[in-house]
Protein backbone atom coordinates (compact mmCIF):
# COMPACT_ATOMS: atom_id res chain seq x y z
CA UNK A 1 0.00 0.00 0.00
CA UNK A 2 1.70 3.19 -1.23
CA UNK A 3 1.62 6.27 0.97
CA UNK A 4 0.01 9.54 -0.17
CA UNK A 5 2.06 12.65 -0.97
CA UNK A 6 1.05 14.21 2.39
CA UNK A 7 2.09 11.10 4.29
CA UNK A 8 5.44 11.01 2.47
CA UNK A 9 5.89 14.70 3.29
CA UNK A 10 5.29 13.96 6.96
CA UNK A 11 8.19 11.46 6.91
CA UNK A 12 10.37 14.00 5.02
CA UNK A 13 9.56 16.63 7.68
CA UNK A 14 10.48 14.16 10.42
CA UNK A 15 13.88 13.51 8.79
CA UNK A 16 14.49 17.26 8.33
CA UNK A 17 13.68 17.81 12.00
CA UNK A 18 16.20 15.12 12.93
CA UNK A 19 18.83 16.64 10.59
CA UNK A 20 19.01 13.56 8.36
CA UNK A 21 20.10 15.74 5.44
CA UNK A 22 23.16 13.63 4.59
CA UNK A 23 22.39 12.18 1.16
CA UNK A 24 24.21 8.88 1.74
CA UNK A 25 21.91 8.15 4.70
CA UNK A 26 18.70 10.02 4.02
CA UNK A 27 17.33 7.90 1.16
CA UNK A 28 18.15 4.72 3.05
CA UNK A 29 16.44 5.82 6.28
CA UNK A 30 13.51 7.33 4.33
CA UNK A 31 13.03 4.12 2.35
CA UNK A 32 13.27 1.99 5.51
CA UNK A 33 10.68 4.07 7.39
CA UNK A 34 8.28 4.16 4.43
CA UNK A 35 8.66 0.42 3.77
CA UNK A 36 8.02 -0.31 7.45
CA UNK A 37 4.93 1.94 7.55
CA UNK A 38 3.55 0.44 4.32
CA UNK A 39 3.92 -3.13 5.61
CA UNK A 40 2.47 -2.30 9.03
CA UNK A 41 -0.48 -0.43 7.51
CA UNK A 42 -1.49 -3.65 5.75
CA UNK A 43 -0.56 -6.13 8.50
CA UNK A 44 -1.85 -4.31 11.55
CA UNK A 45 -4.83 -2.48 10.06
CA UNK A 46 -4.18 0.68 12.10
CA UNK A 47 -4.30 4.29 10.84
CA UNK A 48 -1.22 6.07 9.43
CA UNK A 49 -0.76 8.43 12.39
CA UNK A 50 -0.49 5.57 14.90
CA UNK A 51 1.93 3.61 12.71
CA UNK A 52 3.98 6.75 12.02
CA UNK A 53 4.51 7.36 15.74
CA UNK A 54 5.29 3.69 16.38
CA UNK A 55 7.92 3.58 13.63
CA UNK A 56 9.54 6.97 14.35
CA UNK A 57 9.68 6.08 18.05
CA UNK A 58 12.02 3.20 17.11
CA UNK A 59 14.17 5.53 14.98
CA UNK A 60 14.35 8.39 17.50
CA UNK A 61 17.25 6.85 19.43
CA UNK A 62 19.33 6.34 16.27
CA UNK A 63 18.71 9.89 15.08
CA UNK A 64 19.30 11.83 18.29
CA UNK A 65 22.11 14.40 18.28
CA UNK A 66 25.41 12.90 19.33
CA UNK A 67 29.16 13.62 19.29
CA UNK A 68 32.40 11.66 19.45
CA UNK A 69 35.86 11.89 20.94
CA UNK A 70 37.28 11.28 17.43
CA UNK A 71 35.83 14.53 16.05
CA UNK A 72 35.61 16.67 19.18
CA UNK A 73 32.52 17.17 21.32
CA UNK A 74 31.75 20.52 19.69
CA UNK A 75 30.77 18.72 16.47
CA UNK A 76 27.35 17.14 16.75
CA UNK A 77 25.28 15.17 14.25
CA UNK A 78 22.62 12.45 14.39
CA UNK A 79 23.95 9.28 16.06
CA UNK A 80 23.67 7.24 12.83
CA UNK A 81 25.93 9.82 11.07
CA UNK A 82 28.48 9.85 13.91
CA UNK A 83 28.59 6.04 13.99
CA UNK A 84 29.16 5.84 10.23
CA UNK A 85 31.75 8.65 10.26
CA UNK A 86 33.66 6.92 13.08
CA UNK A 87 33.95 3.73 11.01
CA UNK A 88 35.60 5.64 8.17
CA UNK A 89 37.73 7.98 10.26
CA UNK A 90 39.06 5.79 13.10
CA UNK A 91 42.16 4.47 11.31
CA UNK A 92 43.10 7.95 10.02
CA UNK A 93 42.76 9.29 13.54
CA UNK A 94 45.26 6.78 14.91
CA UNK A 95 47.68 7.20 11.97
CA UNK A 96 48.28 10.84 12.85
CA UNK A 97 50.43 9.85 15.86
CA UNK A 98 53.06 7.85 13.88
CA UNK A 99 53.21 10.61 11.26
CA UNK A 100 54.41 12.90 14.05
CA UNK A 101 56.63 10.52 16.03
CA UNK A 102 58.43 8.68 13.17
CA UNK A 103 59.93 11.85 11.55
CA UNK A 104 60.56 13.24 15.05
CA UNK A 105 62.73 10.27 16.06
CA UNK A 106 64.45 10.06 12.66
CA UNK A 107 65.48 13.73 12.93
CA UNK A 108 66.56 13.34 16.59
CA UNK A 109 68.76 10.33 15.74
CA UNK A 110 70.28 11.71 12.52
CA UNK A 111 70.48 15.45 13.20
CA UNK A 112 74.17 15.46 14.20
CA UNK A 113 75.21 13.64 11.00
CA UNK A 114 73.80 16.32 8.69
CA UNK A 115 76.31 18.57 6.94
CA UNK A 116 75.42 22.25 6.40
CA UNK A 117 74.42 21.53 2.79
CA UNK A 118 72.07 18.68 3.78
CA UNK A 119 70.60 20.75 6.63
CA UNK A 120 69.96 23.71 4.31
CA UNK A 121 68.45 21.43 1.67
CA UNK A 122 66.07 19.83 4.22
CA UNK A 123 65.17 23.27 5.52
CA UNK A 124 64.36 24.54 2.03
CA UNK A 125 62.43 21.35 1.26
CA UNK A 126 60.30 21.79 4.44
CA UNK A 127 59.59 25.42 3.52
CA UNK A 128 58.45 24.52 0.00
CA UNK A 129 56.36 21.59 1.25
CA UNK A 130 54.69 23.81 3.90
CA UNK A 131 53.66 26.44 1.34
CA UNK A 132 52.40 23.85 -1.18
CA UNK A 133 50.56 21.82 1.41
CA UNK A 134 48.86 24.86 2.92
CA UNK A 135 47.81 26.14 -0.51
CA UNK A 136 46.39 22.73 -1.40
CA UNK A 137 44.49 22.59 1.91
CA UNK A 138 43.04 26.06 1.21
CA UNK A 139 41.96 24.99 -2.27
CA UNK A 140 40.20 21.91 -0.83
CA UNK A 141 38.51 24.04 1.87
CA UNK A 142 37.26 26.43 -0.82
CA UNK A 143 35.96 23.57 -3.02
CA UNK A 144 34.27 21.88 -0.07
CA UNK A 145 32.44 25.04 1.03
CA UNK A 146 31.29 25.72 -2.54
CA UNK A 147 29.73 22.24 -2.61
CA UNK A 148 26.60 22.49 -0.46
CA UNK A 149 25.65 18.80 -0.55
CA UNK A 150 25.97 16.97 2.77
CA UNK A 151 27.37 13.46 3.16
CA UNK A 152 28.92 11.61 6.10
CA UNK A 153 32.27 12.55 4.54
CA UNK A 154 31.41 16.27 4.49
CA UNK A 155 30.76 15.96 8.24
CA UNK A 156 34.27 14.50 8.66
CA UNK A 157 35.70 17.33 6.50
CA UNK A 158 33.92 19.93 8.63
CA UNK A 159 35.55 18.53 11.77
CA UNK A 160 39.03 18.53 10.15
CA UNK A 161 38.92 22.03 8.62
CA UNK A 162 40.66 23.66 11.57
CA UNK A 163 43.84 21.68 10.76
CA UNK A 164 44.51 24.37 8.14
CA UNK A 165 45.41 26.65 11.06
CA UNK A 166 48.53 24.54 11.70
CA UNK A 167 49.70 25.23 8.16
CA UNK A 168 48.94 28.93 8.63
CA UNK A 169 51.03 29.03 11.82
CA UNK A 170 53.93 27.44 9.94
CA UNK A 171 53.62 30.07 7.22
CA UNK A 172 53.99 32.86 9.80
CA UNK A 173 57.35 31.44 10.84
CA UNK A 174 58.94 29.34 8.12
CA UNK A 175 61.95 28.45 10.24
CA UNK A 176 62.62 24.74 10.81
CA UNK A 177 66.00 25.20 12.54
CA UNK A 178 66.39 25.31 16.32
CA UNK A 179 68.54 27.77 18.29
CA UNK A 180 71.66 25.59 17.79
CA UNK A 181 71.19 25.49 14.03
CA UNK A 182 69.93 21.86 13.92
CA UNK A 183 66.73 20.73 12.23
CA UNK A 184 63.90 21.16 14.79
CA UNK A 185 62.62 17.61 15.32
CA UNK A 186 59.39 18.66 16.97
CA UNK A 187 58.48 21.15 14.22
CA UNK A 188 59.39 18.54 11.58
CA UNK A 189 57.04 16.04 13.23
CA UNK A 190 54.20 18.56 13.33
CA UNK A 191 54.84 19.46 9.69
CA UNK A 192 54.62 15.79 8.66
CA UNK A 193 51.40 15.43 10.67
CA UNK A 194 50.05 18.52 8.88
CA UNK A 195 50.96 17.05 5.46
CA UNK A 196 49.22 13.84 6.50
CA UNK A 197 46.13 15.76 7.60
CA UNK A 198 46.13 17.58 4.23
CA UNK A 199 46.25 14.20 2.50
CA UNK A 200 43.45 12.81 4.69
CA UNK A 201 41.36 15.93 3.91
CA UNK A 202 41.94 15.25 0.20
CA UNK A 203 41.00 11.58 0.69
CA UNK A 204 37.70 12.42 2.41
CA UNK A 205 36.94 15.16 -0.12
CA UNK A 206 37.28 12.58 -2.91
CA UNK A 207 35.05 10.18 -0.95
CA UNK A 208 32.50 12.99 -0.52
CA UNK A 209 32.37 13.55 -4.29
CA UNK A 210 32.14 9.79 -4.89
CA UNK A 211 29.25 9.51 -2.41
CA UNK A 212 27.36 12.29 -4.22
CA UNK A 213 27.92 10.52 -7.55
CA UNK A 214 27.03 7.10 -6.10
CA UNK A 215 23.72 8.33 -4.71
CA UNK A 216 22.38 9.47 -8.04
CA UNK A 217 19.82 7.23 -9.74
CA UNK A 218 21.44 4.53 -11.87
Amino acid sequence: MELTTEQLQKVEDYLNLKDITYIDLRMEVFDHIISDIEVKLVDENVDFETIFYLVTDIWDKHLKQSSSFYFGVAYTAPKIVIDKAKKYFKKWFFLILPTYFIPYFIIVKTNTFFTEIIKNSIHLFFQIVTVLSFMFFLLLLFKKYKNEKKTTYSFILKTQSLNALVGFLFLINLNFLDNDGFIDASKSGILMAFIFSTYSYFHFYKKHLEAIKKHKIS
Binding site: M27, D31, D83
Partner: peptide, 26 residues
Amino acid sequence: YPALHKLEADGLLAVEVAKVGNRLRK
Protein backbone atom coordinates in the same frame (compact mmCIF):
# COMPACT_ATOMS: atom_id res chain seq x y z
CA TYR B 1 23.04 -0.03 9.28
CA PRO B 2 26.33 0.16 11.20
CA ALA B 3 27.06 -3.39 9.99
CA LEU B 4 26.20 -2.52 6.37
CA HIS B 5 28.27 0.68 6.54
CA LYS B 6 31.23 -1.22 8.00
CA LEU B 7 31.07 -3.80 5.21
CA GLU B 8 30.80 -0.99 2.65
CA ALA B 9 33.77 0.85 4.23
CA ASP B 10 35.80 -2.37 4.10
CA GLY B 11 35.07 -2.66 0.38
CA LEU B 12 33.06 -5.87 0.75
CA LEU B 13 29.79 -4.30 -0.39
CA ALA B 14 28.98 -2.00 -3.29
CA VAL B 15 26.01 0.35 -3.45
CA GLU B 16 23.48 0.91 -6.21
CA VAL B 17 20.61 3.43 -6.19
CA ALA B 18 17.39 2.88 -8.10
CA LYS B 19 14.00 4.59 -8.27
CA VAL B 20 11.29 2.33 -6.88
CA GLY B 21 7.70 3.65 -6.87
CA ASN B 22 7.63 7.03 -5.17
CA ARG B 23 11.16 6.98 -3.75
CA LEU B 24 14.82 6.11 -4.23
CA ARG B 25 16.17 2.86 -2.88
CA LYS B 26 19.73 1.98 -1.92
